[in-house]
Structure formats: structure tokens, C-alpha cells
């Protein structure tokens, strides 16, 4: 089965500023991929390229199509929420549903209505009358009611309270996701999506610095916390990053000798957030 997203040397320049610098990555069907990077790293540009919203250099195939030239066809099989609260102020909830039902062959009205009912949003209210969180709920309901092969979410839960965020991610994993679909998601709250991601892409300064499944991360990366007396021995195993924590030192390793590490202390798999910080901070001081 071909990859859902396949990018080769994806490059995008805005004048002198290089937003994407020969980025290579791919995403397979049935995966939930987290695209994680600091502000200005090129996340948004990468998403815009994938969704056909911007021209670029290099090669990019999404669901077998060239996104920029074939955006209309691509949007039959892909859908996205590229920013929060972008539904226009004048739009009525019922009109929004009618419109998407009218133009999108894969939209399931009953599903959208059920999602809206769950969020307690009904009828003829205009977006300007809704809170930011409710607007986000409407947009999520519209998008999740589309039977898409690829769902792209850029900070989908910004502005939602913790209950709504949890409910959204639960619905995403339990009701929406199946093996035929692919979800690409960016978020600042890495901890929240950590448990549902199957793959992560770290992006920094326009380049992909890590492209890995979560399973591979467990076999490839390790961290241990050691007291000062064992620090030298731990450093001998060549950590790529270390940071002090509660009087101990946490050291991060890529492809270490797990047996030797185990002799030094309790070996654990770093969290995505920790690995992200470690990878991007880079190098032992």
C-alpha cells in the first residue's frame, strides 16, 4: 500500500526565509502522526503544502495526488482544520451543515447532528453568538462527519476546556479512527496526544529531525536518572542530552547498550515531550 503522504525534498521559501528546507517524511494509512515542532519551525507551512494551500518546491504526493494542483479532488478524500475559530461570524449552524452536506459527497449529516447535540449546540445560532470553544466544536463536528481518508488537524483543541479536549480526543480515537484512515495532527500540548499517536515527526528550522513510530522510539531511545556518583559512568555511554532533575541527572541515549544502562539505574523510554526537548536542545553541554 502506498504512503498516504510522501514528501521528498519539500522546500518552501518566503523571500530569504526558508520555511521548509528539503524536508523528507511520509505517513502510512492507519497511523496517527504527530507533527511536533517549536513555533516558526515550519509546521504550518508543511500542513499548507500537504493541503494544497500553497505552492512549493520538491515532491509531494498526498493520497496519490499533487496537492497544489489537485486540491479540489484531494478535498474529496481529505479534510482539515487548519486553524481554530475560522468559521465566519455570519454563518448559521444549520446553514453550515446544509452547505457541507450540499457540496461534500462524503459528509454524513446525522453524524454531524449527533456530535453537535453532544456538545449542546443547536439550530440557527450564528457563529458570532457562539464562544470560541463552541465554534471549535461546530468545526470539529463538521469535519469529523466527513468520511475522509486523511484528516489534518492544526492545533484542533485550542480554546477548548480540558473536558472538551478529552472528549474530542476520545471521540477521535474511538469513533473516528480506523485502519483505513490517517490523521496528521499538530499541537503544543504534546502530553495530551502522546497516548494516541502512533508516529511522530519532529520538525525544526524547516527540517525533519525525527521521523519515527512510537514503537521504534521505545527500542531506540532510552533515558536514565542517575545520582552524581554514577554520572561519569553514565556519561561514558554517550548520552546526547542531559538535564538535572531533583538533585539527579537525567541522561538521554540514542541506540544505547541497554544492558549496560540497566546496570547504572532504571532505564525508561523518554516521553515525547522529553525526547522533543532533548532532540532540539541537542548536544551535551
Amino acid at each position: 500500500m502506498p504512503a498516504v503522504i510522501e514528501a521528498r525534498d519539500l522546500t518552501k521559501k518566503y523571500g530569504a526565509h526558508v520555511a521548509l528546507d528539503r524536508a523528507n517524511f511520509s505517513a502510512e494509512a492507519g497511523r496517527i502522526v504527530g507533527l511536533i515542532g517549536p513555533n516558526g519551525a515550519g509546521k504550518t507551512t508543511a500542513l499548507r503544502a500537504i493541503l494544497g494551500l500553497t505552492d512549493f518546491e520538491g515532491q509531494l504526493q498526498v493520497l496519490g495526488r499533487e496537492p497544489f494542483r489537485e486540491r479540489t479532488a484531494l478535498m474529496h478524500d481529505a479534510c482539515f482544520i487548519a486553524d481554530v475559530a475560522v468559521l465566519p461570524a455570519w454563518l448559521r449552524v444549520d446553514h453550515a451543515i446544509d452547505f457541507v452536506a450540499g457540496v461534500h459527497p462524503r459528509f454524513r449529516r446525522d453524524r454531524a447532528l449527533a456530535l453537535l447535540a453532544k456538545a449542546g449546540i443547536t439550530g440557527k445560532r450564528r457563529m458570532r453568538e457562539l464562544s470560541k470553544g463552541m465554534k471549535t466544536q461546530v468545526h470539529l463536528a463538521l469535519t469529523m462527519a466527513i468520511d475522509a481518508k486523511l484528516l489534518v488537524l492544526d492545533e484542533p483543541t485550542l480554546g477548548l476546556d480540558i473536558l472538551a479536549r478529552r472528549a474530542f480526543y476520545d471521540a477521535l480515537v474511538n469513533d473516528y479512527m480506523d485502519e483505513t484512515r490517517t490523521i496528521l495532527i499538530t499541537t503544543h500540548q504534546v502530553e495530551e496526544v502522546e497516548n494516541l499517536l502512533t508516529d511522530v515527526l519532529f520538525i525544526d528550522k524547516g527540517r525533519i529531525v525525527l521521523d519515527s513510530s512510537l514503537d521504534d522510539i521505545a527500542t531506540r531511545y532510552a533515558a536514565i536518572a542517575v545520582a552524581t556518583d554514577r554520572l561519569e559512568a553514565a556519561r561514558a555511554e554517550k548520552p546526547f542530552y542531559e538535564r538535572p532533575l531533583l538533585g539527579k541527572m537525567v541522561l538521554y541515549y540514542e541506540q544505547p547498550n541497554f544492558d549496560q544502562l540497566a546496570a547504572l539505574g532504571e532505564v525508561h523510554t523518554p516521553t515525547i515531550a522529553d525526547l522533543f526537548v532533548a532532540k532540539l536542545s541537542g548536544g551535551v553541554e
Binding site: 493541503l51 486540491r71 479540489t72 478535498m75 457541507v100 457540496v103 459527497p105 468545526h139
Partner: peptide
Amino acid sequence: ADRKDRSILFWKSMPISD
């Protein structure tokens, strides 16, 4: 108007050509 209020990001997520 829809670039200004960013709703273009919603309209462009629909299978409608420019």
C-alpha cells in the same frame, strides 16, 4: 473578506475549486 477573517481556511477545506 474571507481572507481577512481567515474563514478561507474553512471554504478551502471543501471540495470546491477556486
